[in-house]
Write a protein that binds this DNA or RNA. Structure first.
Length: 711
DNA sequence: TTAGGGTTAG
C-alpha cells in the first residue's frame, strides 16, 4: 500500500528513466479507480506531471526511441504530450513520425497545429507546411509568424512578405520575424524600413537589426545602431552582446570590443556560450590570438562552434600548424567536427601547402559523411588546387551534388592557376548552362586563365562580357588582368593605351603588370616609363626595381643595372631573397640559391651534377640571360645550376619514391632557365614535377610544362 | 516543460 506522496514521487521519478515497466505499474495502480487511497486523484495528477518531466528529459537529450517507449505506455496522453513528441521528432528531423503522431491525435489545439507546421518547415517540407497552414481550423498570431520564418528559410521572401501583409493581427514577434526574414535574405534596406516602422520594438528587434547589418557586410552601421540602443538605456541580453561583439570583430573595433568584454564580465554574461565564442572570435580577428586562446581555455565547456572559432583564429593569425594541432586535439577529445571546422582546417592546409595533411582531412570528411557537403566540397576543391593537385580537385568537383557559385569559382580559379585555361573556359560555359550567375571572382578567374595561356582574343571577349554584365562591377583587379593579357601577348602599346582610357585611376599593380610584360618582351623604352609610375606610387616596394634591373641585365646593360641597384640601396630597399621549399613527411625543407646548409647538401649537389650531365647529353644549353650578375659565363652557369628551385627538386628526387610526383613551392617567379631545365629534368627522371611560384602552378611532365611556356 | 521573433565559428 502506498502511503506518502513523497514516496510515490520518488519511486516514479527514480524508476522512470531505467525501469519503465515498473514505473508504469505504479502509475496504473494510482490510476485504478478501485484503489481506495484518499490521495489517489491528486497523486494521479501529480504523477502525470512527473511523466511529463520524464518525457521532457528524454526529449531534451534527443533520445527519441526511449521517448517513444515512454510515450506508448502513457494511457490517454494529453494534447500537450503529443505536441511535445511532435517537437521532439521535428528537432531530430523525423518528419514522417511527427506527421504520423499528429494523425493519431484524438484532439488537436492550435499549438499542436503550429508545432506540426514548424516541424514540416524545419524538416524541409514546405508544401506540407503550407497545406497544414491552409487547412488548420483556427490560426493565431503564432501560426502566421511560424509560416513567415519558415518561408524565409526557403528563401521565399516575397511569399513571407505577402503573408505578413495579410496578417489579421501582429505583435512585436511578428515584426521581428519579418525583419529577420529580410536580413537573412540580404534585403537589409527593407529590414531597416520595417524596423523603423515597428510599433513597439524590443531588445530582440534591435538585436535582429544589428545582426542583420553585420551579416550583410555593414558592420559599421551595426555598431552605429548599437550606440543608439546603448544610449536608450535598454537592458542588453547575452544575444545582443554576442551580436555586437561579432560586429566589433568584423569591423576590427578592438577598443569597443574590449569595453563590451568588461561589461559582459560585470553582468555575468561572459560565461554564456555564445558570448564566450564571440569573444574568442573578436580577439582572433583583431590579431590578439593569445587573448583568444586564453578565453577558450577558460571556458567551462567547449563546443564545436567555439573550437572552430579558435581553429579559424589560428589560421587568421598565420598559425596554421597550431590550427591543425587544435583540430587533432578536438578529434582526440571525441568532439565531432562539422562543415565549418573542416573549412577552417582545410584553409590551414592551404596556408601550409600541405597536400598530405589535406588528404588526411579529406579521408576524415568521408568517414563522417561530410565529403559531399557543399561547403566541405568547396574547401576540398580549393585545398587540392592550391596544393597543386588540380586533378583531384576536378574529380571532387565532378562528384559534388549541390554546386553553388563558390564551387564554380573555386574550380575555375583553380584551373586558371594550374594552367588549365581551356578547361576553365569550358567550365564557365557549363556554369552558364546551369544558370549560375557569374560574379567578380568568376571573371577574375577567367581573365587570369587567359593571361596565363596568352589567349588574347578570348581575354578580350571575357572582358567584353564583364563590361556588359549588369550584375557585376568591373574592378581594378579585372583591369590588371586585362593589362597582363595585352602585355604578355606583346601588345605593349595597346596596354598603355588601355590604361590611359581606364575609367578609374590606375594603381601600382596595373603598372607592375605592364612592367612584367616589358621584362618578358625586353622592351626597355616602355619599361622606363612604366617603372617611373610605380616608383612614384610605391617608392618603398622592391618589385619595380628588381624588374627594371633584370630587364637591363638581360640586355647586358650593366651600367643601368648598377644605377638601379644604387637607387635601391640609397632608398634602403632590399630585394626579397628567392627561396624554394618542399614538404616531406610534414617537414618543410627550404633552400636559397647556392645553399649548402641542408644536412643532405652533399647528396643534393651530387644529384645536381648528375642532372647537369644528363641535361647536356640531351642538348640542353643554359640560358645565360637569366643569370643576373655581371660575371663570366662559367660563373653564370654555376649560379643557374644552383638556383633554389633546382636544389629543392634535387632533394625531392633523392628523398621520394621513384616515379612519384614532386611538389615544390617558390616565393618568387620561377626563372626562365630553371623553367627550361625543369622541363628536361621531368623527361630525364620520368617524374611529374609541380612547381608553384609566386603567380601560378607549373606542371612539368615528359619534357613539357602545363603553362605552355607562358609564365 | 504543447506553438512564433534576436545570438557564436564558416
Amino acid at each position: 500500500m502506498i502511503s506518502e506522496a513523497s514516496e510515490v514521487d520518488s519511486l516514479v521519478m527514480s524508476t522512470c528513466r531505467l525501469h519503465l515497466d515498473a514505473s508504469f505499474q505504479v502509475f496504473k495502480l494510482l490510476s485504478d479507480p478501485t484503489t481506495s487511497h484518499p490521495l489517489a486523484a491528486r497523486r494521479c495528477q501529480e504523477v502525470g506531471s512527473h511523466w511529463k518531466a520524464a518525457l521532457f528529459r528524454l526529449l531534451e537529450s534527443r533520445d527519441m526511441d526511449e521517448a517513444h517507449r515512454l510515450f506508448t505506455r502513457i494511457p490517454s496522453p494529453s494534447v500537450q504530450l503529443y505536441t511535445m513528441m511532435i517537437n521532439g521528432y521535428s528537432r531530430t528531423n523525423r518528419i514522417d513520425e511527427a506527421f504520423r503522431l499528429f494523425g493519431c491525435m484524438p484532439v488537436r489545439d492550435t499549438a499542436a497545429w503550429n508545432s506540426m507546421i514548424k516541424a514540416a518547415l524545419d524538416c524541409g517540407d514546405s508544401s506540407l507546411g503550407r497545406k497544414l497552414f491552409d487547412e488548420m481550423p483556427e490560426r493565431n498570431v503564432i501560426s502566421w509568424t511560424t509560416m513567415i520564418s519558415g518561408l524565409s528559410r526557403f528563401g521565399w521572401i516575397d511569399a513571407a512578405a505577402e503573408l505578413f501583409s495579410r496578417m489579421p493581427r501582429r505583435d512585436t514577434a511578428s515584426w521581428n520575424a519579418m525583419i529577420s526574414a529580410y536580413c537573412d535574405n540580404g534585403r537589409v534596406k527593407d529590414a531597416r524600413l520595417l524596423f523603423e516602422k515597428t510599433p513597439q520594438p524590443n531588445v530582440i528587434s534591435w538585436t535582429a537589426m544589428i545582426g542583420g547589418h553585420d551579416q550583410n557586410g555593414e558592420s559599421d552601421k551595426a555598431l552605429l545602431l548599437f550606440h543608439k540602443l546603448w544610449s536608450s538605456g535598454t537592458k542588453l541580453t547575452p544575444s545582443t552582446y554576442a551580436c555586437v561583439l561579432t560586429a566589433c570583430a568584423n569591423a576590427s573595433e578592438l577598443g569597443l570590443g574590449t569595453q563590451l568584454h568588461s561589461h559582459t564580465v560585470r553582468t555575468g554574461y561572459s560565461s554564456d556560450a555564445f558570448v564566450s565564442t564571440s569573444l574568442v572570435n573578436l580577439y582572433a580577428k583583431c590579431k590578439q590570438i593569445e587573448d583568444s586562446i586564453q578565453l577558450f581555455c577558460e571556458r567551462k565547456e567547449r563546443d564545436v562552434v567555439s573550437w572552430t572559432a579558435l581553429i579559424t583564429g589560428y589560421g587568421l593569425n598565420d598559425r596554421h600548424e597550431d590550427a591543425l594541432d587544435e583540430f587533432n586535439k578536438m578529434i582526440a577529445s571525441g568532439m565531432r567536427p562539422n562543415q565549418s571546422t573542416f573549412t577552417s582546417a582545410l584553409n590551414s592546409c592551404c596556408g601550409l601547402e600541405a597536400l598530405d595533411r589535406g588528404k588526411k582531412l579529406h579521408a576524415t570528411t568521408v568517414k563522417l559523411g561530410l565529403e559531399l557537403d557543399v561547403f566541405v566540397g568547396n574547401s576540398l576543391v580549393v585545398m587540392y588546387s592550391k596544393c597543386g593537385d588540380i586533378e583531384d580537385g576536378l574529380m571532387l568537383f565532378d562528384r559534388m551534388d549541390g554546386r553553388n557559385l563558390v564551387s564554380w569559382n573555386s574550380i575555375i580559379v583553380g584551373c586558371a592557376q594550374n594552367g588549365y585555361a581551356t578547361l576553365a573556359l569550358k567550365l564557365f560555359d557549363g556554369m552558364r548552362q546551369v544558370n549560375v550567375q557569374p560574379d567578380e571572382i568568376t571573371y577574375t578567374g577567367l581573365l587570369t586563365a587567359c593571361s596565363h595561356s596568352r589567349m588574347l582574343e578570348r581575354g578580350r571577349l571575357i572582358f567584353h562580357l564583364l563590361k556588359h554584365d549588369s550584375s557585376v562591377q568591373v574592378k581594378l583587379e579585372h583591369y590588371v588582368c586585362m593589362v597582363d593579357i595585352l602585355g604578355r601577348c606583346g601588345n605593349l602599346e595597346e596596354a598603355e593605351e588601355f590604361i590611359r582610357n581606364m575609367p578609374v585611376e590606375p594603381n601600382s599593380k596595373i603598372w607592375l603588370a605592364l612592367l612584367g610584360a616589358c621584362r618578358m618582351h625586353a622592351n626597355i623604352e616602355v619599361a622606363r616609363r612604366t617603372s617611373k609610375k610605380v616608383f612614384d606610387m610605391e617608392p618603398d616596394s622592391s618589385a619595380a626595381y628588381v624588374l627594371l634591373s633584370n630587364i637591363y641585365a638581360s640586355a647586358g646593360r650593366w651600367n643601368d643595372v648598377s644605377q638601379t641597384r644604387l637607387m635601391m640601396r640609397c632608398r634602403g630597399i632590399t630585394k626579397v631573397p628567392g627561396s624554394s621549399w618542399i614538404t616531406l613527411k610534414e617537414t618543410r625543407h627550404e633552400f636559397v640559391c647556392g645553399d649548402r646548409s641542408h644536412p643532405m647538401a652533399m647528396e643534393i649537389y651530387k644529384k645536381l651534377d648528375w642532372l647537369g650531365v644528363k641535361l647536356k647529353e640531351l642538348g640542353y644549353v643554359y640560358d645565360r640571360t637569366f643569370a643576373l650578375h655581371d660575371v663570366d659565363d662559367e660563373q653564370k652557369e654555376a649560379a643557374l645550376a644552383h638556383h633554389s628551385e633546382k636544389l629543392a627538386i634535387a632533394f625531392g628526387l633523392i628523398s621520394t619514391v621513384e616515379g612519384s610526383t614532386i611538389r615544390v613551392m617558390k616565393n618568387l617567379r620561377v626563372c626562365g632557365d630553371c623553367h627550361s631545365a625543369i622541363k628536361v629534368i621531368s623527361q630525364v627522371v620520368g617524374r611529374r614535377i609541380v612547381l608553384r611560384d609566386s603567380t601560378r602552378f607549373h606542371h612539368f611532365r615528359d619534357g613539357l610544362c602545363s603553362c605552355g611556356d607562358c609564365w
